[in-house]
Simulated scan of single mutants.
Amino acid sequence: MDVKKIVHQKNLRYAKKGLLWAFAAGMLYGVTPTLQTLSLALDPLKTASLVSLLLVPLIMACLQDTSSGIAVLMKNIQAGKSKEYIRILRSKPGKFVVLASFFGGPLAMTTVMASVYLAGPIYPIAISACFPAIGAVLSRIVLKEKISINAWIGIVLCIIGALTISWMPPTGGNYPNFYLGLLMAFITAVAWALENIIATLGMDFVDPELAIGIREFTSGGLTFLILPVLAGIGMKSYGVLFQTLPTMGYVYIALAGLFAGASYFYYYKAANSCGASRSMALNVTYTISAMIIGVVFLGSDITLLLVIGTLTLLIGAMLVAGKPAELLTLRDID
């Protein structure tokens, strides 16, 4: 058999694995909104939400990403990779991972937590799922990834799906700041797209398993540092954070961190193997698991517009993903 053909088949198998990793990442991440919502219903987070709008989202983001970073570190220690953390941080690709951590960490985690707090566990997650459309455009500009006609159609469907989902708030008046929550979700989508693009640049030279470990610790650390400033209550914010640790609320956050860490673990591997735009597109399967878990465990409302919008968005995401055979030329320049 021709050597080029053997290499082609090997690369194609690796790219197909990337699609499976992206799907797994999405399904795992869909568990986190329900766990976050459960923690919000318990003190001290329940009471703290009355003090400052950003206090609770920042605390949750800090604790979740730090817990996730510890879980990933345990896995990397087991694999004998822990010593690589410092070396990578000193390198230029490692700095790309740190920069990506800012967008995916303090920015995205705070806005996604705020969106869940303001609009519930289902609608914001659906809106944030339009990030593959944003990411596909950025991938074309920054990473030179090709975008086919089908992918452009998929991008349009993602936007239509997001608009359909946000057309009507849930009934019952439980979320008076519903549309502010959706705005937070959209900011999350932009931040996630930027994170994936920047992280992919770094992971050309960094092991994805180490990249996600650095990402989670950097995110948790940065959020911890900016907590007093953005929360608006100074050092008192640390008091609320530490009060949360011995409670059941933190147990839910830590569990969310485990699922998020596993999700990002596969997500970064997917981005490295099948490209940023494709990994983002398939990652939006978290809308499915988030919806199912939210209904089963929280009794969340499901409206016809939500179902139609989510299906439209998912179809669009699949069109953005494209055919497995196309993955090998994703980053060729036209």
Rank of each mutant, 00 (worst) to 15 (best):
residue 7 V to S: 13
residue 8 H to L: 13
residue 8 H to P: 07
residue 8 H to E: 15
residue 8 H to Y: 15
residue 9 Q to A: 08
residue 10 K to S: 08
residue 10 K to W: 04
residue 14 Y to Q: 12
residue 16 K to L: 10
residue 22 A to F: 01
residue 24 A to I: 15
residue 25 A to G: 09
residue 25 A to D: 06
residue 27 M to G: 09
residue 27 M to P: 02
residue 27 M to D: 02
residue 27 M to I: 14
residue 27 M to K: 03
residue 28 L to G: 00
residue 28 L to R: 01
residue 31 V to C: 10
residue 32 T to K: 00
residue 33 P to L: 07
residue 33 P to R: 02
residue 35 L to R: 01
residue 36 Q to Y: 10
residue 36 Q to G: 11
residue 38 L to A: 10
residue 38 L to G: 00
residue 39 S to T: 03
residue 40 L to G: 02
residue 40 L to I: 08
residue 40 L to C: 06
residue 43 D to R: 05
residue 43 D to V: 04
residue 46 K to C: 03
residue 47 T to K: 09
residue 48 A to V: 05
residue 53 L to V: 14
residue 55 L to W: 02
residue 55 L to I: 10
residue 60 M to C: 06
residue 60 M to G: 05
residue 63 L to C: 09
residue 64 Q to V: 08
residue 66 T to S: 14
residue 66 T to Y: 12
residue 66 T to A: 12
residue 67 S to T: 15
residue 68 S to T: 07
residue 68 S to I: 05
residue 69 G to H: 02
residue 70 I to F: 14
residue 72 V to A: 11
residue 72 V to G: 01
residue 73 L to W: 05
residue 73 L to I: 12
residue 74 M to S: 13
residue 74 M to G: 12
residue 78 Q to C: 11
residue 81 K to A: 06
residue 83 K to W: 14
residue 84 E to T: 04
residue 86 I to T: 08
residue 91 S to P: 05
residue 91 S to R: 13
residue 93 P to K: 09
residue 93 P to V: 06
residue 96 F to V: 04
residue 97 V to H: 07
residue 97 V to E: 04
residue 97 V to D: 03
residue 97 V to W: 04
residue 99 L to D: 01
residue 101 S to A: 15
residue 103 F to I: 04
residue 103 F to S: 03
residue 103 F to Y: 09
residue 104 G to T: 09
residue 104 G to Y: 03
residue 104 G to I: 04
residue 106 P to I: 03
residue 106 P to H: 02
residue 107 L to W: 00
residue 112 V to N: 03
residue 116 V to C: 11
residue 117 Y to Q: 14
residue 118 L to V: 00
residue 121 P to M: 08
residue 121 P to F: 05
residue 121 P to I: 07
residue 121 P to L: 07
residue 121 P to N: 10
residue 124 P to Y: 10
residue 124 P to Q: 12
residue 124 P to T: 13
residue 126 A to E: 03
residue 128 S to K: 01
residue 128 S to N: 06
residue 129 A to F: 05
residue 130 C to A: 11
residue 130 C to T: 11
residue 131 F to H: 12
residue 133 A to D: 00
residue 133 A to C: 06
residue 137 V to R: 09
residue 140 R to E: 09
residue 141 I to G: 07
residue 142 V to L: 10
residue 144 K to C: 12
